Amino acid sequence: MKQTFQELITYLKNPVLEKDNNTNLNYRFTKFIHLLIICIITSGLIMPLFYLIEYLGLVDMEKHAMEDMMKTLSKPMVFFFAVIVAPLVEELIFRGPITLFKDKNSFKIAFYSFAIIFGLVHITNYNITTNVLLLIPLLIAPQTILGGYLGFIRVRFGLQWSILLHACYNAFFMIMAFAGETV
């Protein structure tokens, strides 16, 4: 996993349009699991910041779009939208076009731009207030970083792998949310 993390960090510092030619399924599945764990750990490291933001009364996390969905839709429907619909649609929009940028410089700009726009789109999950606007960089950090991770696997292994990683990432957090409700 350390090697995968180092590859990921090196890639994020200088993204290039270069596929991983190792098509061995065991190799790819191992890298996939490593990336999923890295995604989850990254979110876990950022999460205390959100607790602090809420504790300080800067943003009411109860007014988050996911909280609204959890209150108005059945668990299977929330799971379906979060784990199937969102990853499919978002990956087609934000990772699908990345490989169209063949020039080295335009690829790098596109890679970072799609990751940032992916993060910015998620600001709509919040009720827009002055505090939310001021805290945008922090509030979208998890999605922006995830966008970079998803871009990495998309370029290296293909679009289907970024869709799968996105779906598994969302599924993990949906299962945690559902488990937290019963406690």
Rank of each mutant, 00 (worst) to 15 (best):
K108N: 06
L133C: 06
I109A: 13
L134G: 11
T124Q: 15
N127P: 08
I123Y: 06
T124P: 08
L120E: 01
N125F: 12
S106T: 14
N125C: 10
T130I: 12
V121H: 15
L134W: 08
L120Q: 03
L138A: 09
L139Y: 03
T129M: 05
Y112M: 03
I140K: 02
I140Q: 09
L135G: 07
G119R: 00
Y126W: 11
L138F: 14
T130W: 13
G119T: 01
L139R: 00
L135Y: 09
Y126F: 13
N127V: 10
I117D: 02
N125R: 09
I128H: 02
I128E: 03
I116E: 00
L120K: 09
V121T: 11
I136P: 02
S106Q: 11
A115N: 03
F107T: 07
N125D: 10
I140P: 07
V132Q: 11
L139E: 02
L134D: 11
N125Y: 15
Y126K: 15
L120N: 04
F118D: 01
N131D: 13
I128D: 04
I116W: 02
A110W: 01
V132N: 11
A115T: 06
T130A: 14
F107W: 00
Y126E: 14
V132F: 05
F107M: 07
I123P: 12
H122S: 04
L135H: 11
N125H: 10
S106P: 08
I109S: 09
L133T: 06
F118K: 09
I123G: 11
T130S: 10
I140T: 08
T130V: 10
S106H: 09
L120P: 01
I109K: 09
I123Q: 14
Y112H: 00
N131C: 08
I116Y: 00
I136Y: 06
I136Q: 03
Y126M: 14
L139H: 01
S106E: 09
T130H: 10
F107V: 07
N127L: 13
F111Q: 05
S113H: 10
Y126G: 12
N127A: 12
F111G: 01
A110R: 12
F114I: 08
H122I: 03
L139Q: 00
I136D: 02
I117R: 01
G119S: 00
N131Q: 12
L120T: 04
T130Y: 13
F114Y: 12
T129N: 05
S113A: 12
T129K: 01
L135W: 11
I128Q: 05
L138G: 07
K108V: 10
S113L: 15
K108L: 09
A115K: 01
F114N: 06
L135I: 07
H122Y: 09
V132M: 08
Y112C: 03
I128N: 04
I116D: 00
L120V: 05
I128A: 04
F114T: 04
Y126I: 15
F118P: 03
K108M: 12
F111W: 06
L134K: 11
V132S: 14
S106Y: 06
I136F: 07
L139G: 01
G119H: 00
A110G: 12
I116P: 00
F111Y: 08
F107S: 06
I109F: 10
I128S: 02
